[in-house]
Design a protein around this nucleic acid. Structure first.
Length: 571
RNA sequence: ACGGGUGUGGUGUAGCCUGGUAUCACUUUAGCUUGCCAAGCUAAGAACUCGGGUUCAAAUCCCGGCACCCGUACCA
């Protein structure tokens, strides 16, 4: 489906503003630039921090999840387990006539069973065997060339170990599960978050900061008992609506409750985090009319995923994926269990311990040892794990030890009835992963809040996101007004509010400068201040002014900045 | 990655065809002025994407790199 570009911003206008006002710009420009790498400038860095704080306020403060901070450089094993090593390595072929590039495994999909898993040589063989030609012009194709989208590096300068720059922040939350589970006092569900950089060597970075090689993510991994997938707080928001675009159905506004009941969204927590996402994004100033949740098609969803929704925003680049919220089942933990052998499981207690009677084989090590020497340990393990129904204690047990038949004489084991108290079971938790692309959200904040009235540009950022909270001006830079304004400026900064003092040019120009930077309020010291001790506070969006006593200014400014006081409510 | 287009102060641009000291506006800075919304005056600062070639001389012509935009592909 072609995106609809009506009522959307021309990206070039955003890019110009971003560069002029120091939000973001291409990196390394004086050295010719480097595709897919951007700097956040003075205002951009602060706004990025503000978006992160907003996110933390919701995930860490409101939902009670715990934050971790782990290395970017990671050993190869991590990505062998996660699947990135194979998933991020494609084999590409190119048409020798029309030069178009294709994925080799895609061309073989109809004639081979599992081309995705084939090696370079196997692919080449299969291509020749089936006489694959270019699908668009029937020209001959080149040999498959390996394309890996992870940045590889060497850990240790001499004879080091292969490492990769992580392509997402998620993995540490999985492979540290055993510790994090303990930290959360062995209770499910619980959530872990990580904010940080990820790296992908994109074939073709484009569209400014929305598709870059080094990017910022805010990710949560929420672990559940699969038999009890609930998240506290769902009931409170279950009557809220979301705009959904389900796989195979029309776009619709629907309540969380209905969407879960009708099976459109797979479970309550998934719906809950979708709503939380909507809440965070609109708090960051995104226009809810330009947001939707699109369900992954069956074909694009990873095979292990139970359900997956992208939150998309309409921007000057078309629909842009900002957030992915996926129920990934137990895939990630299980993969790390398989790869590392670590016990990344949770223990689910039964309401009452269950008494069980079991027949078990007890190996007699003092007999096994002398008889089987080095193999005794492995034999003992195998004995105690094997089913023992109908075994006779008088007959030797025959075991298959790596292809070798071994007969275990009866004196080496006993069979006994045991009563066991089972108080619970070990399970591999399921995980729901809300994953936010910070840079894309950043871009969309600018896109959705850009306002133009003729030549006059206002960036209508919400107070919490705006880098500068207050412009502080003397009406005239003389007669002591400048000193009074500087004083106010200094005091507000001491209270932790980022201000911008400006005493140059006309007052209108100073207001305009702040409007374009998205600063929500300006404080002006004028001649009356000397007489009545009041200053004006001017609201960016209405241009209205209120006079307030300087004695009340700090208190009011703090309340305005944390949104606990609306401008209109100033007395 | 392929095809097409584009690269001039912080931003937007003129100049390129037809080679000869780079245009204009906004912005910025300093001063004057200005008593609440990009006013005015004076002055200043600031650019030819990079490398190579042709030429007495290259922003301009030729070749190559880099970056950006669009399409296809790729990717989430």
């Amino acid at each position: 489906m072609k995106p609809c570009y009506r009522d959307t911003m021309d990206p070039n206008i955003i890019l110009g503003l971003a560069k002029r006002r120091g939000f973001f710009f291409p990196s390394f420009e004086i050295y010719g630039g480097m595709a897919g790498l951007y700097d956040y400038g003075p205002l951009g860095s602060t706004m990025k921090t503000n978006i992160e704080s907003l996110w933390r306020n919701n995930y860490v403060m409101r939902e009670g999840m715990s934050e971790i901070f782990s290395p970017i450089i990671s050993p190869e094993d991590v990505f062998r387990a996660s699947g990135h090593l194979s998933e991020f390595t494609d084999f590409s072929v190119q048409c020798q006539k029309c030069n178009q590039a294709f994925r080799a495994d895609h061309l073989l999909e109809e004639v081979e069973d599992n081309p995705d898993a084939m090696s370079q040589d196997e692919l080449q063989e299969a291509m020749v065997k089936h006489g694959i030609k270019c699908p668009s012009c029937k020209g001959g194709l080149s040999e498959p060339v390996s394309v890996n989208l992870m940045f590889k590096t060497m850990v240790g300068p001499i004879g080091g170990r292969d490492g990769y720059m992580r392509p997402e922040t998620a993995q540490a939350m999985f492979f540290n599960f055993h510790l994090l589970y303990k930290f959360n006092r062995e209770k499910l569900p619980f959530g872990i978050v990580q904010l940080g950089k990820g790296f992908r060597n994109e074939i073709s970075p484009r569209q400014s900061i929305t598709r870059v090689r080094e990017f910022n993510m805010m990710e949560a991994e929420v672990f559940f008992d699969p038999s009890n997938k609930v998240w506290p707080g769902f009931d409170e928001v279950s009557s809220k609506t979301l705009r959904l675009l389900p796989d195979g159905a029309d776009e619709q506004d629907i309540t969380l409750r209905d969407a879960v009941d009708k099976g459109i969204i797979a479970n309550e927590p998934l719906a809950y985090f979708m709503h939380l996402t909507q809440h965070i994004l609109t708090s960051a100033g995104l226009d809810s009319k330009k947001l939707r949740f699109r369900q992954h098609l069956k074909t694009e969803m990873a095979h292990y995923a139970e359900d997956c929704w992208d939150c998309e925003a309409m921007t000057g680049y078309g629909w842009l994926e900002l957030v992915g919220i996926a129920d990934r089942g137990c895939y990630d933990l299980q993969s790390h269990i398989d790869e590392s052998g670590a016990e990344l499981t949770a223990f689910i207690r039964f309401p009452e311990p269950i008494e069980m009677e079991a027949t078990i084989i007890v190996p007699n090590l003092s007999a096994l040892g002398p008889l089987f020497k080095g193999k005794a340990g492995a034999i003992a393990t195998k004995l105690s794990e094997m089913p023992c129904d109908g075994l006779d204690t008088a007959i030797p047990i025959v075991l298959d030890m790596d292809g070798e038949e071994v007969s275990i004489p009866p004196e080496c084991f006993t069979i006994s009835q045991e009563k066991k108290k089972v108080s619970g079971k070990r399970i591999v938790p399921h995980v729901i992963e809300p994953s936010y692309g910070l840079d894309r959200i950043f871009y969309t904040v600018m896109d959705h809040n850009y306002k133009e009235d003729g030549e006059y540009v206002t960036l209508g950022l919400p107070v919490t996101i705006a880098p500068i909270k207050f412009g502080v001006f003397p009406l005239m830079s003389k007669d002591g007004l400048d000193d009074m304004a500087s004083d106010i400026d200094k005091k507000l900064r001491q209270k932790g509010l980022l201000t911008y003092y400006d005493g140059s040019g006309t007052i209108g120009r100073r207001y305009a400068r702040m409007d374009e930077a998205g600063t929500p309020f300006c404080i002006t010291v004028d001649y009356e201040t000397k007489e009545d001790g009041c200053v004006t506070i001017r609201d960016r969006d209405t241009k209205d002014q209120k006079r307030v006593k300087m004695d009340d200014l700090e208190r009011i400014a703090i309340s305005l900045a944390d949104s606990s006081l609306a401008f209109e409510a100033i007395g």
